[in-house]
Design a protein around this nucleic acid. Sequence first.
RNA 1: GGAGGGUUGGCUGAGUGGUCGAAAGCGCUUCACUGCUAACGAAGUAUGGGUUUAUAGCCCAUCAAGGGUUCGAAUCCCUUACCCUCCGCCA
Length: 423
Amino acid sequence: MLDIKFIRENLELVEMAAAKKHIAVDLKRLIKLDDERREITQRLEEKRAEQNKVSEQIPSASAEEKQSLIASMQEVKTAVQADEEALRPVMEEWRTLMLQVPQIPDMTVPEGESDEDNEEVRTWGEQTTFDFEPKDHIELMTALKMVDFERGTKVHGFRGYYLLGDGARLTWAIWNYANQFFMEKGFTPMIPPTIVRKENFYGTGHLPNEAEDLYETQDGDSLTGTSEVSAMGYYRDEILDKAQLPTTFLAFSPCYRREAGSHGKDTKGLIRVHEFYKLEQVVLCEASHEESVRWHEQITANSEEFMQSLGIPYHVVVNCGGDLGQGQVKKYDIEAWVPKEGKYRETHSSSYFHDFQTRRFNIRYKDEDGTVRYAHSLNNTAIAAPRILVSLLENFQQADGSIAIPAPLVPFFGKDRIELPTR
RNA sequence: GGAGGGUUGGCUGAGUGGUCGAAAGCGCUUCACUGCUAACGAAGUAUGGGUUUAUAGCCCAUCAAGGGUUCGAAUCCCUUACCCUCCGCCA
């Protein structure tokens, strides 16, 4: 959500932002509606002032005066009601349009339509080479009895899976390692709800435009596709002390995504599934662009450091305008090397929003001088599983079909190699 | 799932149709006082919007949220959310 005053004063900038993000929003219409809103509101407030003034006189007026005052106020009331009626449809459309207005992307965001146009900013590690024919994660995991896709689809349906044996154990090891790693960085661990009210999705910016991707309950709530939604909702409608900032959560939750519109993509394996688990870095910081940028680089670096500790080759891309979410100012994706596919696949997504989300959530803080400001918000994946298994297993596979476990995971996993179980 | 009772400012809590944006107390801020601290005393202490050079005034809104009744609603009615008590069910 942008401030309507800002939109009015920077209309060209907002138009450019929408164009860069390839988002269609009728800003002319919004301004026209806002003119109407202001005009009606002003009229309405004058009448209400009149009502309030006379209402103060009525109790002390004589019986005769009282009658005439009440009679005149009946007319004012009718006029007030007429204005209220007129305002209602204006506000409804005004709100709808306001929810469509995108956040202004940063100057450094490249032009482009889709993820095809994202630009590589750096790479880490060598693209893994093998002196044997490597297998993909599906073959590897199936052979090592780490996963069962057939029974997954039998029980869940399309994109269903079971993690089994070392597949489940390795996933737990990754969570536990990630927990330790990020807690050492000062993040507060959080296990948030995943069945949440719709307003939280409006808050993060997932609604109104991503409704198709949400699972709904029969009570009108939705399942979160990322713990960002419930972690951000935590401080909704609150005014924090500045001393509470920055607030950094490491939120762990299952994530539910309908993947509507991507039925043909990644139909096999663990890249794209309807439910998975993710540890997410969520940050609220003070309202300064510099702070936002500093934290953005920091939470990106955190995840890179984590990937480096695992030894997984990756690169970082800066997302182009067309691949940015409505509320995002700038976004980096970390993409891990997947040898069998011969390309990098997204494992992390790191973005900042300025006050786009906190305006919608009404999350503010009190500055030293008493000024109340909207905080800034950011988030980045810490680690998503089982997706991370794809690159992890494919990169560390051995000629004999076993998997070498990266050293930092060994204490959590309990052994340094995955081999075919004897039973 | 059934029955009943609640939701008021940072907190406790008064207020059942009219000078109520809201008593009182606590907390907090400032001032005064005191050798220092405490106590006592004085003043102040919400958020959003409009107007404005203005963090001065003035105006509008907000007593869980939304709608309604009324000239007028914290107060009456309806709906929703949440909290509490009892019964039922339950990991």
